[in-house]
Design a protein around this nucleic acid. Structure first.
Lengths: 244, 244
DNA sequence: TCTACATACCGACCATCGGTCTGTAGGGTT
DNA sequence: AACCCTACAGACCGATGGTCGGTATGTAGA
């Protein structure tokens, strides 16, 4: 083959053709990384293009708009969150309270894992401008987990263990609390960055204890029924984050 | 002044010069109207310009960016919310629960008034894309009202009336609930638009009753202590909205 | 009242960004 | 080999937020 100029010297073939799903995945990977690092509005299509090594035409062959990219990223998270929630539900048995506690534990474990995997995730979601991104992800993830949660609460009501004024409000309250953790996370993160891991851990832990006490009330349970705190888990997460 | 050509024929003086505050106010008026009607991202600077009857250069003399406009609008609301909250606090006396109820009543009255004044307000804030605007306003308004709320709750704790796990969480929970009303508002609004005012009212009322029951729990109060429902108020608001 | 200075204001211009369109490469099928 | 389908390239476009040099409208001091 007298084509050394073809087989070897061509370091960059003009076109790399991929299966749609694969290409889509690559683009989403690049976009996700950028979005988490700097927020959705700040990142331009051009940047995603060069990060994903594809042309504009190629991109718009797979995505209809920039908004579509956001949807794609959010969708990934939703799917992950959903399967995680279902796994947690299916893996546990016993009465509603036991299942509920197991579910909360798994849920916070999953969140901590996300925080560990993506260095910027927590740091970034605390910055204004990323509200949209963060809000959409948490909303979608919560929405995915909500049916599972409500099912368990329903079971608790049927069993006569829980006593609640309105089932929708319970779900909402829990979602609201989880959203409000943003502030505490920021505080803990700042402390961790200054090397004060103890204070950071204690900060998160106190919050979780308080949340648990509040959920006790909301579900009409005696104090100490709901378990939400897991200091070692926080420690791991914070350590992973701080170590770049 | 023999200058008929000056005093009368000049229909449009080339420049209208105003005091900075006045001009700023005019621009904000125009911007607010447009934002509420169609959302922040949809409205272009050019539209604000023509609505406020000012040139681009003039505009950028008073505002540094489009974002600045949002800040201005939000700031107005914050101030209004703050004074409303303070008024409500100062106007009431009695024990913490009485003051708390009075405060809630005033607060919801104020919100209803806003909904009445601005036709599009509710309709618009339910549309995606206006999340940012709505979120920023509610967040700012809530943040303004929060100290007042916490002060009252603190009083209740001191008086031994309230029994709470963590004061910050209480504020957060209440704020979260108020944010979650969006969904219910949408439902009620849709019902009202179809002429079913009864269903709309009932929808809001049920929500408020449930919320009150939940807050009872959170504050460690016997059921029925917190009063949040005011059907006639909703009726007025919904009627005003539906009648264009 | 003339001059000098400050500032509110104008509008043409610019850079950038999301999105479109025409054309092309490359793998599979016949 | 001829063909087609489609993943892909990149020039191009319209809109939009923002800038800049210049102009009108005051006001303070001589």
């Amino acid at each position: 083959m007298g084509a050394s100029s073809k087989t070897e010297n061509d370091k960059t073939p003009k076109r790399v053709r991929m299966a749609p799903d694969e290409r889509r995945g690559h683009i989403l990977d690049a976009a996700q990384k950028l979005f988490f690092a700097r927020g959705w509005d700040d990142v331009t299509i051009a940047e995603v293009l060069s990060a994903a090594k594809i042309s504009k035409g190629g991109f718009y062959h797979h995505f209809s708009a920039k908004e579509d990219l956001l949807d794609g990223v959010v969708e990934r998270f939703t799917i992950q969150a959903l399967t995680a929630a279902q796994t947690a539900r299916d893996a546990t048995s016993g009465n509603a309270l036991q299942r509920f506690n197991a579910f909360l534990a798994e849920s916070s474990r999953w969140k901590a894992e996300q925080g560990r995997k993506m260095k910027f995730f927590i740091e970034v979601m605390l910055r204004p401008g990323n509200d949209i991104l963060f809000d959409r992800i948490t909303t979608a993830a919560n929405a995915a987990a909500m049916p599972v949660l409500l099912e368990m609460i329903g079971q608790g009501v049927d069993e006569g263990i829980f006593d609640i004024p309105d089932i929708d409000l319970v779900g909402e309250t829990i979602m609201g609390l989880s959203r409000g953790r943003r502030t505490v996370l920021k505080e803990a993160f700042d402390a961790a960055e200054q090397g004060d891991l103890d204070r950071a851990t204690e900060c998160l832990d106190r919050r979780m204890v308080a949340e648990a006490a509040l959920i006790d009330r909301v579900l009409g349970l005696p104090r100490g029924s709901v378990l939400l705190s897991n200091p070692t888990e926080y420690r791991l997460m914070l350590r992973a984050i701080v170590n770049d």
